[in-house]
Amino acid sequence: MENTKKFRREPLTDTQLLMTITIGIFFAMYLIAMAVLKGGFLRPQQIFDMLNDNAPLIITSCGLTIVMIAGGIDISVGAVTSLVVMSCVLYLNRGGNIFVSVLLALGIGLAFGLVQGYLISYLEIQPFIVTLAGMFFARGLTTILSVNPQKAEHEGFAKLRDVKIEISWLGYVAKNGNRIPARIELGVVIALACVLIIFLLLKFHKLGRGFYAIGGNQQSALMLGINVKRTRFITYIISGLLSGIAGYVFMMHTGAGNATNAAGMEMNAIASSIIGGTLLTGGVGNVVGTLFGTLTLTTINKIVVSSGLKDPWWQKITTGGMLCFFILLQSIVLSRRSKKKQS
């Protein structure tokens, strides 16, 4: 009796189903790329490169996933990231302290989160407009700080930037016979830590369950005794804070501030969340799915580049096509399930 109970599987929830599809497609795509394109795809370094390049995107996507689960939207993340990079680089170049620069990054992110969250949750202004204004403000402020690209020339920071985890047995032998170890940047560790923390928060903490509740049905959440306004406020604070962290990681990766940094990152973050199975209507989503969503998006780009489509437009057109595929797939899967439920 107890045995059957243990092995009876509960049907997958919407979140888990969409996430499973994404993870399945990611592995299928990567395996096909390994079999057909070979080259770099056979090396583990390829995956680490993808992570190294996209650590900031993963972090911002996590924040966006939380906001989207709670039924909102935050399109200011890319601009805030850019602002953080620029202000931290300028601060460090004036002989600043590394510890203070981290605080500065977190502070800027937090400030944006606080103001936007307050306007959206307590003054009930539409989130799209508020975060659009936030985006304009952050982008404008970045160009006011400096129109020209700024390179970080700070000794302590250079040391921090060069901290890399090297795993020699995962490396490969280069053409000249040297063995090159696999390299992972510090930012990736931070990004994965963020994913883990948010995963635990969403899965096991009361606050995380509250996000799902207010995104699923605001009225019911209110009747359950959840403080809807405060919970929504917190989602934006987390998103802002994560943009700040993403900005610092971005700076550790590029080492320079530029007004066009992280351009279009907000839309990439939204796309990765969607591919990962988060619905913009709220209530459905998972941060692990988001991680794989980001990786899927990057893999598509890598495949397009290495499969020899040289014309510059193909990369974006294939990304758009894949996005279309995922969105349609989700829509069909969800509508079939809701029909099954009804019958």
Binding site: M267, I270, I274, I317, T319, G320, L323, C324, I327
Partner: peptide, 26 residues
């Protein structure tokens, strides 16, 4: 996408937002 597949407009138009300018380039 919006009317028949019932996808939210912002998500549905994200596709063309991503690749529209590249199509113009093409």
């Amino acid at each position: 996408l919006v009317a028949i597949f019932k996808i939210q407009p912002m998500i549905a138009t994200l596709i063309l937002f991503t690749c529209g300018r590249s199509i113009a380039y093409w």
